[in-house]
Amino acid sequence: MKKALLIFFFGFTMFYGQKKKNIKQQESWSITCYLPTGEKCSLEQSKGKSIKDFSSHFEEKSRTWDAYNKNENVVVVFKSFTNLPLFLLMLDKKKYSTEKIKEIIDSIEKESFEYRYYFGKNNYGHHWGLKSEIESYIKENILDREFVLETLGNPDDIKETLYGGNKVTCFFYNEEGIRIYFDDNKAIGYDEID
């Protein structure tokens, strides 16, 4: 009985000690938000528990994509459909200079899988991440004409066509390989082009 009690006590102490250690590690974990200019984000912009929470301070509908720099332990968040950085989330307590932040942003294009997925091209198609977001934003009903023009620029061609039996406007983006259909201001569909 004494042995069983001793084993129980020892196990409880080990479990409690490990739990306390994990809590201390979480307390030391912090996320620091920086702007691409090298300044720290304002107190309001620094609030959030997820990238989507942070993004809502920079883009009202959180239409952003992110890339992780594993060497620096930094997440760079971009405005959707662009390579325009909105903010960076540093996953440690280090301080970063303006030059270092610029270096991290510049390294994303060369080193990030997410960047290649978002803008990359290969035999099977191109701009997978961008197309995936267009599809997602259409489903969520948060993709409008102004955002598309602001981020993708003027289309290569604009035509009036039928979509789902209704007359709509269609924007053609040849480089991205997509057509986006708009009913009034809202994007209602898209498809791929060669």
Rank of each mutant, 00 (worst) to 15 (best):
S56C: 08
Y124L: 10
Y181M: 10
P85E: 02
K19P: 00
S30F: 06
Y173P: 06
T151K: 13
D183A: 11
E44A: 14
V74Y: 00
R63Y: 02
E175G: 08
T161H: 08
I193W: 09
N71V: 01
E146S: 15
N154I: 12
V76S: 03
L89R: 04
K110S: 11
L162N: 14
V75P: 00
F8W: 09
R145Q: 15
N73V: 02
I7A: 12
S97P: 06
L89Y: 04
F9G: 07
G164A: 12
G17H: 10
F78Q: 04
K159H: 10
A67I: 01
E72K: 02
N122C: 05
S136C: 09
K2W: 11
E60L: 05
K2E: 14
E146C: 07
Y68N: 03
G153C: 11
Y16W: 12
D184S: 12
K24G: 03
Y137F: 15
S107Y: 01
K95A: 08
G129D: 06
K19I: 09
F119Q: 00
D183F: 13
E114S: 14
K131G: 06
N73E: 08
E135T: 09
G125M: 07
D106I: 01
I31W: 09
I134N: 03
Y163I: 03
K19H: 13
R63V: 00
F87P: 00
G165R: 08
D144W: 10
H127Q: 05
E109C: 03
K131L: 07
W65F: 05
K159I: 12
S28K: 15
T37R: 08
I101K: 01
M14T: 13
